[in-house]
């Protein structure tokens, strides 16, 4: 990060390391991180749900910590590392949390799922063996509009077991 910058600008050059790869784009200062990911980089796995910091569908990891990318400017991510759902696994090698959501049917329509998975990943990094109450509290920032919470909690529990065994 530069020690100080020049005059304020309406367009900013942003370099973000996304899923391990440095990506440089010039964007309007008001560009949100979620739009930078989806529209500039084509990484549409990160969803826009409520767009008001409530539903968590846009959750990504910034410097390893889950944040809501609809409430971060792309400019604030300049010089930082971002991991999206595309960066944690793929069809051939799913992340354990992805496998747990599959195995436990932790999704219905699937819209909240990328954010849920990124949030569960954070929850289990902070607390590798959470109880059901801790899982529900830990996912307070993520809403499933299908209300499929029972299986989401079951998936988080199964993911904890998988991660501990791996």
């Amino acid at each position: 990060m530069p020690a100080s910058t020049g005059p304020a600008e309406r367009d900013v050059a942003v370099t973000v390391t996304v899923n391990g790869e440095p990506r440089r784009e010039r964007v309007p200062a008001r560009t949100l991180l979620v739009h930078f990911l989806r529209e500039q980089l084509g990484l549409t796995g990160t969803h826009v749900g409520c767009d008001t910091t409530q539903c968590g569908a846009c959750t990504v990891a910034m410097d390893g910590v889950a944040v809501k990318s609809c409430t971060v400017l792309a400019a604030q991510a300049d010089g930082h590392e971002v991991t999206t759902i595309e960066g944690i696994g793929d069809a051939e090698g799913l992340h354990p949390v992805q496998r747990a959501f599959w195995a436990e049917h932790g999704l219905q329509c699937g819209y909240c799922t990328p954010g849920m998975i990124m949030a569960v990943r954070q929850l289990l990094a902070d607390n590798p063996d959470p109880g059901d109450d801790e899982i529900r509290r830990g996912l307070a920032g993520n809403i499933c509009r299908c209300t499929g919470y029972q299986n989401i909690v079951a998936a988080a529990r199964a993911a904890a077991t998988m991660l501990q065994e791996s």
């Binding site: 020690a3 100080s4 020049g6 005059p7 304020a8 200062a29």
Partner: peptide
């Protein structure tokens, strides 16, 4: 949703932030 357009400056230190603030004002 987009915010209204704005100009963005980044401060690297408290002194720098106070300077940017004074200049904008």
């Amino acid at each position: 949703m987009y915010t209204a357009d704005f100009a963005y400056a980044r401060a690297g230190s408290l002194a720098g932030a106070l300077e940017l603030l004074a200049a904008a004002q």
